[in-house]
Design a protein around this nucleic acid. Structure first.
Length: 878
DNA sequence: TTGGAGAACCTTTTT
DNA sequence: GGTTCTCCAA
């Protein structure tokens, strides 16, 4: 990697004329004799497929790259190759990634190649959204915006929609703004404007006012000079369509397009790419340009004039698009990603070269075997077979462990990490990958007690913290006086006695005068329409912003930011606040100012925040990483822990409810992503009890455990204090899970074993009457439900409804689906055996007295643990 | 207008 | 269990 830069003499002359870059025939000729390029160091060490992917620079290419097959390396090497062979200048390359992390990594690697700070010489590299911003800033006026528009985050969007819903006279309880925000996002992800959304969608919200609201929303965004995330894709698409000459400009500019994680592109991103990549044949191009209807496409006229030149260009302008992806790692379907995009690539780009990378360099044969076997349960895939030459008998199998509950799970994983640490493993090489972020806390708690350093990636977002959002709102108003949403957020922060009534008045004045709220406030402050108190307060606010806005031109932005927080009284507000978290908040504010230093201006900083919503973390410290499976994609670790493999959590209940079969398959791909993150050691955990919505609920091991191949898996035989509960499968249960219809994972043998096997010191407590009853109910209930599955029947249990198809062992009660409610139901069918005042024992909390009974839910005053609500199946009379 | 108390909601994943 | 929302008293 390090030797690259020497191969690239042209970087010494970044201003050389583009004509020097060969294109068309010359390029093809060069490609044809690419064999000679072996002189380039960077091609060494590539396997034949990788090399093909790097060297097939002309025409459309799809690289199907399985996990750990060197995908990123191929992409960066490909860029290096294009540059080194003089096929294009950096600025003629467009490289799109899906996450900021990936963009950062690629930028780093390429930065190495072409020298840091060579901004002019960098390719257009970034996420779809960040490139969308770049495009939109250039052509903002074509979307009815000014180029200094603000990007709203989800929170702003929801507040804005709420206002609109209320303005329509709709009940914002019945029609939650959040729901509509999601609908909007879906539409935009499909590239649909207000007039293009399906009638059914339009009618389904707000008494049929869906379309109307969408329109009102877009208008409002325009007056606010703002756009939302979806617009960053949606506006460029519309501009490209309505203004062919703009599109042509980019056709000329970008010679090579590279796309990472192609399987995760949604429809809008796909349209965007196609517009950029697919130079239509001349006839199609001019036809599109002539279409009269496309918005106010007044500037389409030059289309005809340039037709001839385009015809000439077309023969040279081949579509040099290269998409890299793995259909087995498509995990963003819930966000509108279309796996289809990758599956039909060769139809979209005829004559595409498809290259498969199947040689895995990352994981042991056991890990690979487990992952491949699991993912084979999915249908509708390209089908790749990952292989490795690695065959080391010393390699560990994949370990499956059981714990009693999430606390025990955290403790066990903590112990395991410390054990690895004693064997001289770095914490940096270990990661815990969870399905849902709430799982993280148990680990954080435990690690704090242990004094084990950890880092949470993508956890509670830095920029989403209250104090940060407040501070940013101040900055936003200074940067863009038209940002009403930000203004509203902080006009009364710190408290100035500007309540709802005053804000409403500012709002109305702004509407009437057709000016931003800040301006309206300034006017109002000078009028006599307000009472003296709010008037004085408002006058101060307006004067402050006026002063700061002036200072924006002259003062360095970090200094200004500090001044703003001081003069507004915001820092004082927290200094006077005596709650426990105020020092932390002040610290965060300092951190915020510090992080601004890296940016040129307040505006560029704000843009970064809006797009990234993530503070860079110091990588220097040795720490265990904790993150969600989603954010782990693209990473690798020597040792990986995968906790929480239980039905309802993983696969997640909602994915099953909303996605049905495809939802399950996506969850399985997520599991696959998790498994393939590990290089050497892989530990999967599941627990029997989990605290969900404040209730302890019993859980069933994930079906994915059943889908792991026995030969590569080692089920830990309960090395922990809860002994016999360790092996969920009893004897040979792995075999029972596969082939033909699924069976009850709780084979009868399992419960027969209880008591027979050595249960460790807890066996006695398990044998209490309450425990036995709970087990009996559980076995019966699960058997009943599982039994129905083979016949594809749905059976009603109690008053809950079982979900159809794939949902198993779960019952939805009162509209809500609660894991483990099944147990409760059966117990509740028989009158509760408990009375208020009874003394009971709970496995986790010890002895206590029942304070209240609500159906099957008991409120118990525990001697040690205090008052808790638990299901009656989990306590036994003393 | 503010702040406290209680109710209601929630919990998948992210640009 | 935790957070946000709503209502009500000062």
């Amino acid at each position: 990697m390090s030797g690259f830069s020497e191969d690239m003499p042209f970087f010494d002359e970044p201003n050389a004329r583009p004509a020097a870059a060969p294109s068309g025939i010359a390029a093809r000729a060069m490609a044809a004799r690419s064999g000679q390029n072996s002189a380039h160091d960077y091609l060494k060490g590539l396997n034949p497929e990788q090399r093909l992917a790097v060297e097939t620079t002309e025409g459309p290419v799809l690289v199907l790259a399985g996990a750990g097959t060197g995908k990123t390396r191929v992409l960066t090497t490909r860029i290096a190759h294009i540059l080194a062979t003089g096929r294009a200048f950096p600025s003629q390359i467009l490289a799109v990634t899906f996450t900021n992390k990936a963009a950062r990594e690629m930028k780093q690697r390429i930065g190495h190649l072409i020298g840091e700070g060579n901004v002019e010489g960098m390719p257009w590299l970034g996420t779809f959204h960040s490139i969308g911003v770049k495009l939109l800033r250039r052509h903002a006026e074509l979307a009815g915006l000014k180029s200094d528009f603000t990007i709203l985050d989800t929170d702003d969007v929801v507040r804005l929609i709420k206002q609109l819903i209320q303005a329509e006279g709709l009940d914002d309880k019945r029609w939650p703004a959040k729901t509509f925000a999601q609908m909007l996002d879906n539409w935009k992800n499909k590239g649909l404007g207000p007039d293009e959304i399906p009638e059914g969608d339009a009618r389904s919200f707000g008494n049929g006012k869906g379309r109307q609201l969408y329109k009102a929303y877009q208008e409002r965004l325009q007056t606010l000079n703002s756009c939302d995330f979806g617009d960053l894709l949606y506006h460029p698409i519309r501009i490209f369509r309505a203004y062919p000459d703009v599109l042509k400009e980019y056709h000329r500019k970008f010679k090579y397009i590279l796309v990472d994680e192609y399987q995760d592109t949604n429809t809008a991103q796909y349209m965007w790419l196609r517009l950029l990549a697919q130079r239509p044949n001349v006839r199609a191009a001019s036809a599109e340009g002539r279409k009269p209807d496309r918005a106010s496409a007044g500037q389409a006229a030059p289309a005809e004039a340039s037709e001839r030149s385009e015809r000439a260009a077309v023969s040279e302008n081949k579509v040099n698009i290269c998409c890299v992806g793995d259909d087995d790692q498509s995990i963003y379907g819930w966000r509108g990603a279309e796996v289809d995009n990758i599956l039909r690539f060769d139809k979209d780009f005829p004559g595409a070269t498809i290259i498969r990378l199947e040689r895995n360099y990352r994981s042991t044969a056991h890990i690979l075997g487990a992952a491949s076997h699991l993912i084979a349960h999915n249908e509708g895939r390209f089908g790749k077979t990952l292989f490795t030459d690695r065959d080391d008998p010393e390699d560990d199998k994949v370990h499956v462990h059981a714990s009693w509950d999430s606390e025990e799970e955290a403790r066990a994983i903590g112990d395991a990490i410390e054990a690895y640490q004693r064997q001289k493993h770095n914490l940096n090489d270990m990661a815990i990958l969870v399905r849902a972020s709430f799982q993280m806390r148990a680990f954080e708690d435990r690690f704090i007690t242990l004094g084990l350093s950890y880092r949470v990636i993508g956890g509670p977002r830095f920029y989403e913290r209250l104090e940060i959002r407040d501070a940013l709102a101040f900055f936003r108003v200074v940067a863009n006086g038209g940002d009403d949403l930000a203004f509203e957020r902080i006009v009364n922060v710190p408290k100035r006695g500007l309540g709802e009534a005053t804000i409403r008045q500012i709002h109305d004045t702004a509407r009437a005068m057709r000016v931003p709220m800040l301006e309206a406030a300034a006017t109002l402050a000078e009028s006599d329409e307000l009472k003296p108190k709010p008037r004085a307060a408002l006058r101060e606010v307006a004067a402050n912003f006026e002063r700061w806005q002036k200072a924006l031109e002259t003062t360095p932005h970090t200094e200004l930011a500090e001044t703003i927080l001081e003069e507004s009284g915001y820092t004082d507000m927290w200094k006077n606040d005596r709650s426990a978290d105020s020092p932390g908040r002040l610290e965060n504010l300092k951190e915020l100012i510090r992080s601004m230093e890296e940016y040129e201006s307040l505006r560029s900083f704000l843009e970064h925040v809006a797009l990234v919503m993530e503070a860079e973390q110091g990588e220097s410290l040795d720490a265990v990483s904790i993150m969600t499976l989603h954010s782990a994609k693209g990473l690798e670790f020597e040792t990986v822990f995968l906790p929480g493999w239980e039905e309802g959590l993983f696969p997640h209940q909602r994915a099953l409810d909303e996605g049905g079969r495809s939802g399950l398959e996506e969850e399985r791909r997520l599991a696959y992503v998790g498994l393939t993150r590990a290089k050497k050691n892989l530990h999967i955990w599941f627990v029997s009890n989990r605290l969900i919505h404040g209730l302890w609920q019993s859980t069933i091991p994930s079906r994915f455990l059943d889908e792991l191949p026995e030969t590569h898996v080692d089920v830990a035989d309960g090395g922990n204090s809860y002994g016999g509960y360790g092996n969920p499968y009893g004897g040979g249960a792995f075999a029972s899970g596969r082939g033909g219809g699924r069976q009850n994972p709780y084979g009868a043998s399992r419960f027969d074993n209880i008591g027979a096997k050595d249960q460790g010191s807890f066996s006695n407590t398990y044998a209490t009457p309450g425990w036995q009853r709970a087990q009996a109910n559980r076995t019966e209930a699960t058997d009943r439900n599982w039994g129905t599955r083979s016949g594809h029947q749905v059976e009603r249990i109690g008053y809950g409804e079982t979900d159809s198809g794939y949902g198993a062992g779960r019952t939805s009660v009162k509209g809500r689906t609660i894991e483990g409610e099944l147990v409760a139901k059966s117990v509740a069918d028989t009158p509760s055996a408990f009375n208020v005042g009874d003394r009971v024992f709970h496995q986790k909390f010890g002895n206590g007295n029942i304070a209240a009974i609500d159906g099957n839910k008991l409120t118990i005053d525990f001697d040690k643990a205090g008052q808790k609500r638990v299901l009656d199946g989990f306590v036994a009379p003393v």
